[in-house]
Amino acid sequence: MALPKLAVYKFASCDGCQLSILDVEDLLLDIASVVHIANFPEASREVVEGPYDLTLVEGSITTPHDAERIHEIRRQSKYLVTIGACATAGGIQALKNWKDTDLFMRTVYAHPEYLETLETSTPIKNHVEVNFELRGCPVDKMALVEVVAAFVQGRRPNIPEYSVCVECKRRGTPCVMVGHGTPCLGPVTQAGCGALCPSYNRGCYGCFGPMESPNTEMLAAAWQRLGVNHRGLVDAFRGFNAYAEPFRITSDHHEALAVAKGE
């Protein structure tokens, strides 16, 4: 029986999530033994034409061309899984959604008239139906293996949607907010990284986006008690997952307050 065909596509992104696939090292041969890596330019120049059984999409939609291209990829894909903060939330480049794109074009490029770009950076799900989203900036490589294994075994990927706090406690890391007053996005951020930053006494940066039921306003209030002002809150929530709705609403709210208070 022919193996299911795997394709990997890139949109506006840094390539880090795709590289996580190559970074699984020993397991790469196992992956290649259960799926046919048919279209993965980062790994091989050999490209087998679609349709594909499992398509991994990295990156966000930032150009009219990409907004068209994703529809063709969707048509070619039985299962489409988005990987990383760019594909699932618009990525760090979604910061442009709050700014004037024309100004960027005129400032950065000598001949902006040659460019075609959209006003926004948006996640793939805003354009086509997505079967599963794998969060993270970058994604966790073992979670990628889990997604492929789940697909091959015909089950739903086992990816938690609870907070980073659960991972901190499981690994025995004392809470950085409670223990030394370090502002941390962990309570509103989805697990998946293994609670890396708090284990180095740093607060969470929210790389995996909002958890399943994020109470961002209450966490923001707790940050304010630790001395963070509205501007600081805007900066914190406008990171890699700035355009994810719960983070976006909270940063907009505190931006309005920051402006009102002249911060």
Binding site: D30, I31, S33, V34, V148, Y162, C165, K169, V188, N215
Partner: peptide
């Protein structure tokens, strides 16, 4: 309104015993 549903209280509780069970199968089955 105040609770973050972050689960910290249950994780630090010395008697909270609830657990979940994950089954994992290697790629080659």
């Amino acid at each position: 309104d105040r609770c973050l549903a972050c689960a910290n209280c249950t994780m630090v509780c010395p008697t909270c015993f609830c657990n979940t069970v994950d089954d994992n199968l290697s790629l080659d089955g």
